[in-house]
Computed example of a mutant assay.
Amino acid sequence: MSGGLWDYRDSVWDYRESTWTLDRDLVGYEVEAPDGRLGVVVRASSSSAAAYLVVDAAPGIAGLRLVPAGAVTSMNHDGRTVRIALTGVQLADAPAYEVDSLDDSVRAEHDHFFGNLDPR
């Protein structure tokens, strides 16, 4: 679908800036969106095969959500925050992340969901 969140990147499973995660552990960083705080990073992968964050979502969303690295718009290491291009509603509507690994079926489910989002 044209206009999806992924259209601006060659790889949605990679950070926009490769230096963002260089020698960094993002666990514990606050996750912020255009409409407010969304939760805390509880797991982060910077793997070349698939970079992503697992967010323990704020009350009202409940549960873990996987955020592909391509949705990250900026990082503030001094302030320990990550900004993402998703709203609270979009994160709440995202599939829950209930497994310990990102296999092909989990990745496909998230590709389908995020690929159909309007990034505005």
Rank of each mutant, 00 (worst) to 15 (best):
R80E: 12
H77W: 10
G36T: 04
A94Q: 02
D25G: 03
Y97I: 00
S74C: 03
V67Y: 05
V89I: 10
A57V: 05
D78A: 14
H110V: 07
V99R: 13
I84S: 00
W13C: 03
R107V: 04
S47A: 13
L53V: 10
S11T: 10
A96E: 08
V40Q: 08
P68E: 08
S45W: 12
Y52N: 06
A108C: 06
T87A: 02
R24P: 00
A92E: 08
R16D: 04
L64Y: 11
W13E: 04
R80T: 04
L66I: 13
S101Y: 15
D7Q: 15
A50D: 11
T19P: 03
R65Q: 09
S74H: 05
Y8G: 13
P34D: 06
V99C: 07
R43W: 08
A58H: 12
V67K: 00
A49K: 13
G79K: 13
A51Y: 07
V106H: 08
P95T: 01
G60V: 11
V31M: 04
A33V: 05
A69N: 07
Y8T: 09
T87Y: 06
D78P: 01
S47C: 13
D78H: 09
A92W: 02
G39C: 01
Y52T: 06
S46A: 14
S11P: 00
W20P: 00
V42D: 14
A44R: 04
E17Q: 14
V89S: 14
G79T: 10
A108Y: 10
Y8W: 05
L66C: 03
G88I: 12
R9I: 15
G28K: 15
D10W: 01
A71R: 00
D111P: 07
R43L: 08
D78L: 10
H112M: 07
R37P: 13
H110P: 01
I84G: 02
S11A: 13
N76A: 13
D56C: 02
G60Q: 08
R83I: 00
P95M: 00
D10S: 12
E109P: 01
A51R: 11
D78C: 05
A33D: 02
P68K: 06
S18G: 06
V40I: 11
G60T: 11
L102R: 10
G39H: 01
L38A: 04
N76S: 15
V41G: 05
D103N: 04
V31N: 02
G39I: 06
R80P: 01
G115T: 08
G88E: 14
G4Y: 03
D7R: 14
A44M: 01
T73H: 05
A108I: 04
S105P: 02
V106G: 00
S101R: 14
D93W: 06
A96K: 02
A62D: 11
T73A: 13
P95W: 08
D14W: 03
D100M: 04
S46Y: 08
D100Y: 08
D111F: 07
A85I: 03
D14E: 15
G60S: 05
G70T: 03
G36P: 05
S74T: 11
A92V: 03
V99G: 02
A49R: 09
E30R: 15
D93F: 09
M75T: 12
L5A: 15
V40H: 07
D111C: 08
